[in-house]
Amino acid sequence: MMDIIGDLINFHLIPGIVLGSIYALGAIGLTLTFGILRFANFAHGEIMTLGAYFAWTLVQLTGWHPVAVMPIAMGLTVLVALGIDRGFYKPFRASPTIMLVIASFGMMLMVRSLVQLIWGVQIKTIMPGIQMPLVLFDWLRISPKHIIIVTSAVALMFAVHYLLTYTKIGKAMRAMSDSPELARLTGINTEAVIRATWIIGAALAAAAGALLALDTHIQTMMGFKLLLPVFAATILGGIGRPYGAVVGGLVIGLAEELSSYAWIGDTPLLNPGYKAGVAFAIMVAMLIWRPSGLFRGKVY
């Protein structure tokens, strides 16, 4: 009996939580840009890829643990994101937001091709070697890297919570997400809010990329593969709702991993090749049933 539960927990539940916290970090940034700048940022996945590659390079240069270099990788990614905004998104501030969607769509390919040009397309690992999992009660196995990933993600989520709740810029961000016109009328510096949004979004995206790299490996398509589940988490949680994004990310991550568990009989419930389809199915269901998401986000 313990074996069966152990199997469920070790191979599906824990990986689901790990993946879910990575999705959550990506979705917080996406939901903030969607809520404040009012466009679906297709380049968000590539920002995650960039964060992972910065982290990899820093680990090669310093030999430190990936989590130790993560703040530097986040900082570098933020600089790139601010540069992209200045050069490619800012000219469209007064245009219909669909222009930003096209611009971000183009940016997706530009960033990816640059990553491929600089780092090549071979799969890389950020932490070579296999770590032995910790064994508890004979049946529970937790890999140390999973503990590190979830702890880092939770710490970052608390930091965002503090920022949005107690700081002036965080309050301004929430105000602008709720009503841009009212925010402008009350004298909020919208450009400063937009800058803060890119800083938080890119930093969390970079962290998500680096943590995913720590969990598995690095490849140039990783961001594109993350895009769909992260969008699904954003819509599930409700657009412009960072707490919704956290819940959405966890639900999507758990649903993806639990879908391949043998719930009935001995074969996986869903062919693992279709894992990526789970996020899409949940997203479509939400769009039909409740487009505002679980946390009553915005619907455009």
Partner: peptide, 28 residues
Amino acid sequence: KICLRLRSDYLAIATIGIAEIFRLILKN
């Protein structure tokens, strides 16, 4: 039917999703 009642961004996300799902089907 699902996306056209919402703003274009949703259609963009859903169509990119459909394309990826179809790729999974082709491979699997």
